[in-house]
Design a binder for these strands. Structure first.
Length: 275
DNA sequence: CCCGGAACCTGAAGGC
DNA sequence: TGCCTTCAGGTTCCGG
């Protein structure tokens, strides 16, 4: 039952960004080994290699769940880890290595991805890839008023709306469940039906959930790994996510699991009432 | 525009 | 023991 707690969401991607930012900037790409072409979107493998070799990594930024590697030549390498992607720096025995960037210090940056959903883009302007994303939930632009305006009139379940990346960028299945629990809101509540008080609590819950998870280095059980290969520990703080049948930490009622949009949603039937 | 569901992919886990 | 089915869920695409 605890098989899938590892999908990179905003806190995991932010952790990877911060940890790669320590040693990767300044390194030059000497070669690129492409073991699988599927991650390369909109660019032939040979062109991908040619345009990357000789460039240096500079700053690393994040938009939603995307990592953006700024390169010395002015281009941007944009990476999405999807379900099982990982970026490992100098791993000993990497499994499922799909793309390997060989670096000028003798090391390498490895993109590993069991299920091959991950995506990479090489573009002049990252907006070509991330331009459609919604508001960053940890930015000053994300206010309770902004959240209220985004929810107004929508009949879809609040859980489904939180997962829509064109709405708020970076929230995935597990942190949506955690934020809704913290706010005491049932995941099936129609988004436009939330009260002003609920919206305020949800806004605060989203920020607190994401910030705490970043402080824990993200959540991992199986495939999510930090660049060092270490795990994150945020999943030890989960109250309901992936805890079906276990007691709610607040009231001891059994955590329920339901399907919303073909995704598992976990919630406490006592602390998160519908209506 | 809004909403819901299938497809993509592969390893783990459960059933018989 | 081993085959078969189901499950995981970020994103895109398609149909109503």
């Amino acid at each position: 039952m605890v098989s899938g707690v590892e999908m990179p969401e905003l806190p995991e991607v932010e952790t990877i960004k911060r940890e790669l930012s320590v040693n990767l900037p300044g390194r030059e790409i000497l070669d690129v080994a492409i073991g699988d072409e599927r991650p390369l979107r909109g660019i032939p493998p040979e062109e991908f290699r040619r345009r990357l070799i000789g460039q240096r990594f500079e700053d690393i930024s994040r938009s939603g769940k995307y990592l953006i590697f700024h390169l010395s030549g002015g281009e941007k390498l944009v990476v999405h880890l999807r379900m099982t992607g990982a970026l490992l720096l100098n791993p000993k025995n990497p499994k499922f290595a799909r793309i390997v960037f060989k670096l000028d210090d003798g090391g390498c940056l490895v993109f590993s991805d069991v299920r091959r959903f991950g995506a990479m883009y090489l573009v002049k302007n990252e907006q070509e890839v991330v331009g459609g994303l919604g508001v960053e939930p940890l930015s000053e632009k994300f206010t309770p008023e902004k959240l209220a305006s985004l929810l107004a009139g929508r009949r879809a379940p609040i859980k489904a709306v939180l997962l829509d990346q064109s709405f708020i960028a970076g929230i995935g299945n597990m942190y949506a469940d955690e934020a809704l629990f913290l706010a005491g809101i049932h995941p099936m509540t129609p988004a436009g039906k939330l009260s002003k008080g609920q919206i305020k609590r949800l806004h605060r819950a989203i920020q607190r959930t994401l910030i705490r998870a970043i402080e824990s280095g993200g959540a991992s059980v199986s495939t999510y790994r930090r660049p060092s290969g270490d795990i994150g520990t945020a999943h030890f703080d989960f109250k309901v996510a992936h805890r079906g049948g276990k007691p709610c930490p607040k009231c001891k009622a059994a955590v329920q699991r339901i399907k919303i949009r073909n995704r598992s949603s976990y919630y406490c039937p006592n602390c998160q009432r519908l209506r």
